[in-house]
């Protein structure tokens, strides 16, 4: 499998701000690759570096082996779905989708036919003559997708394309995007701040923090073997223990994390387990599960998540009462110090 996009020691600085700070990264052809991170972490800047809207301060960006740094966006074989869709308001939907073909000099009937096909692909066959302003948010999103795919890019860049949609529509689009990508077989680079979204769709995820990449891995690996405390906390919830706390609890030099669902009341576990006495601070009922906030060693608040279909009689339900927590030694995820 060849490499679609390669970052080699890429940095993008604005005055004193390091938006992207010495990133190296490889995205394989045909991969659904997500860039995940909080706002300001450098994920969007990285995407814009691939598209060519930003230029690296230093480093090299290769797209299918060809150096892209210094190449303007119109000469790059990648296309973008914008966060605000960026549909041209003065053109109808069909002309929006056919825009790239128009620039290439494709005759009108031919480009309209191909644009129609693209609209069919995103289930908007009937909407060609409408103005973008006459469409719903979800429909605009599909038009933006069709427009970006019309030129048959080998890499499709998606900048938080689902951010403005409501939850139901979002979940539906996630499914559709994933199957579209599988069907077309092209590389998707997907920027999001929503870890659930990244996990559910991606082959691999890069977790961004402060302009750097904390970890690049498949979703299962990110969850089960987070490399850093940031990843453990950002990808799913985690109780991170470090410094003296790690030493006191488990006799470890290194920080570690324990997922809330791996923690149980002490009575429910035996074998090689770590036990910690604490005080119940709060219980949050979340439907299928409940979350228990427990203060241990008088300083650290630990989350424990218990499924609700199990009888919770073993756990004390009185807030303020004493409780001893426990987890299996193999549930501890070692983190980089």
């Amino acid at each position: 499998m060849s490499i679609a996009v390669q970052f080699h020691q890429v940095s993008r600085h604005y005055d004193s701000v390091r938006a992207v700070d010495d990133i190296s990264l490889e995205i394989a052809e045909g991969e659904f690759f997500s860039m995940l991170g909080p706002s300001g972490s450098g994920k969007t800047t990285s995407l814009r570096l691939i598209a060519g809207f930003e230029q690296p301060t230093s480093g090299s960006i290769r797209i299918f082996g060809q150096e892209a740094a210094g190449l303007p966006p119109n000469l790059r074989a990648v296309n973008t779905v914008f966060q605000d869709y960026a549909l041209f308001p003065h053109m109808n939907v069909l002309d929006n989708v056919a825009y790239g073909l128009m620039l290439k000099g494709v005759p009108k009937s031919e480009r309209h036919r191909r644009a129609e096909e693209m609209l069919e692909l995103v289930k908007l066959g009937q909407y060609g003559s409408r103005r973008p302003s006459a469409l719903s948010g979800g429909q605009r999103q599909r038009v933006a997708l069709a427009r970006a795919l019309t030129l048959q890019p080998r890499v499709l860049l998606l900048d938080e394309p689902l951010g403005a949609l409501d939850l139901k529509l979002r979940e539906q689009m996630q499914t559709e995007l994933k199957s579209l990508q599988r069907q077309l077989g092209i590389t998707f680079v997907f920027v999001t701040h929503d870890q659930g979204e990244a996990m559910s769709m991606s082959d691999r995820v890069a977790v961004f923090n402060k302009g750097r990449i904390e970890q690049v891995a498949a979703p299962q690996v990110l969850y089960n073997q987070p490399a850093t405390a940031f990843v453990a906390d950002f990808v799913g919830a985690a109780n991170v223990f470090d410094g003296p706390l790690a030493a006191t609890l488990a006799g470890l030099e290194q920080p570690f994390a324990v997922r809330p669902e791996r923690i149980r009341p002490a009575g429910q576990l035996d074998g090689d387990v770590v036990r910690v006495p604490g005080k119940l601070l709060d219980i949050q009922y979340l439907g299928a599960v409940s979350r228990y906030e427990v203060e241990v060693l008088g300083e650290k608040v630990v989350s424990m998540v218990l499924p609700n279909e199990h009888d919770t009689q073993a756990a004390p339900a009185v807030i303020g009462s004493a409780i001893t927590l426990a987890w299996q030694r193999q549930a501890m995820l070692p983190l980089a110090g």
Binding site: V78, N79, T80, H90, G100, R147, A148, L151
Partner: peptide, 27 residues
Amino acid sequence: LSYSLVEASQDLGADMFQTFRYVVLPQ
């Protein structure tokens, strides 16, 4: 004017002159 319109035009293959002619000028 949202600047992403200009970027979208470049992204779809327009050079500066074409972007001005087809996107910026109508706006």
